[in-house]
């Protein structure tokens, strides 16, 4: 306490001196008080362009809106025409002064693919998005401040597997809110969780709340409630460039939906193939059962 009092006296005396000189813009010398200065300068200028291809369905559109709402550093753009090549997205990002891009590509009005890219030099990753649940669903009861900075949680696989280590850095820059972003709010009340499980990356978003009112500012007494959205990212490939380039990693466990459908159709087609086989088999049996003509057959005719 005493030291503060001394400081206070010092300040007042200097203020009086300053008043004697005339107009002083900083009578209390707050500029020099390093303990009061907070680093509020927005240095990390990440910007992410979030948009989709034409043909997006309502659920996926909701997911896109949710992602935009989660990222104060995001920018939006009109739907991408399918005829345009993906490489042109880089130019678009440049026009929008974005250095990251989340592009949702919808195929056949069913499958959703997500490109997460660092523009213009890469890397970029392509995922298939499965099991989408949006913020609009009533089952997830959590809530958090809009545009407060999320903590990012990665499970241990992101340390051990090289492709995932790269993805972690990419996600942290694309999805994480940059420090001191003008739109961001203070306090940390939510966490985005990326977990690698069953060869897929599972995205979950939880609220961090104190257990009781008295447990504020106590990191060990918190409760996590899911806020949403939730989805599963099935990684397909990681490319060296942005929306293309050499393949750095390809997921051997990924099975495309077309392949899945092909197998399904093959299963249904099996009944016909089975009939053909049975017919062939029957003919074989009949042929084998045919007896050779015998001289004795004609004996009593």
């Amino acid at each position: 306490m005493s030291s503060i009092d001394e400081d206070g006296q010092d300040l007042t005396t200097s203020a009086l001196d300053a008043a004697g000189d005339g107009a002083d813009p900083d009578p209390y010398l707050l500029k020099d008080a390093s303990y009061l200065v907070r680093d509020t300068k927005w240095k990390n200028k990440q910007r992410t362009l979030v948009f989709s291809s034409r043909g997006i369905t309502h659920r996926y559109r909701h997911l896109m809106e949710d992602l935009k709402r989660l990222m104060p550093h995001s920018k939006s753009e009109a739907k991408w025409e399918k005829k345009q090549t993906l490489r042109d997205v880089n130019e678009l990002c440049e026009l929008k002064s974005c250095n990251n891009c989340v592009f949702l590509e919808v195929r056949k009005g069913r499958e959703l693919y997500m490109w997460v890219s660092r523009v213009p030099d890469g890397p970029s990753a392509k995922f298939q998005i499965l099991n989408v649940h949006t913020l609009g669903e009533l089952k997830m009861t959590g809530n958090c401040l809009l545009h407060s900075r999320p903590l990012l949680s990665f499970d241990h696989h992101f340390d051990t597997l090289p492709p995932l280590a790269l993805l972690r850095e990419l996600f942290a820059q694309v999805f994480g809110t940059p420090r001191n972003h003008p739109k961001s709010k203070p306090f940390f009340d939510h966490v985005m969780a990326f977990s690698f499980h069953d060869n897929k990356i599972w995205f979950r978003h939880y609220q961090i709340a104190p257990m009781t009112e008295d447990d504020r500012e106590d990191p060990d007494r918190t409760v996590l409630t899911e806020i949403g959205p939730r989805f599963v990212m099935d990684p397909i490939r990681i490319f060296g460039g942005s929306f293309g380039g050499s393949t750095l990693w390809q997921n051997p466990h990924y099975v495309s939906p077309i392949e899945i459908r092909r197998r399904l159709h093959a299963k249904y087609g099996k009944s016909y193939a089975g009939r053909l086989l049975a017919k062939e088999h029957r003919e074989d049996v009949e042929r084998a059962a045919e007896m050779e003509e015998d001289e004795l057959d004609q004996m009593f005719d």
């Binding site: 401040l145 903590l151 499970d155 969780a193 961090i208 504020r216 990191p219 060990d220 918190t222 899911e226």
Partner: peptide, 27 residues
Amino acid sequence: LFHDVAHANATEGLRRLKAMGVKFSRP
């Protein structure tokens, strides 16, 4: 499993924030 991993990580993150003297709970 996801919840537990996220909770452990969140706790760790909040501890770091507390060590830095940054307030994390919304009044």
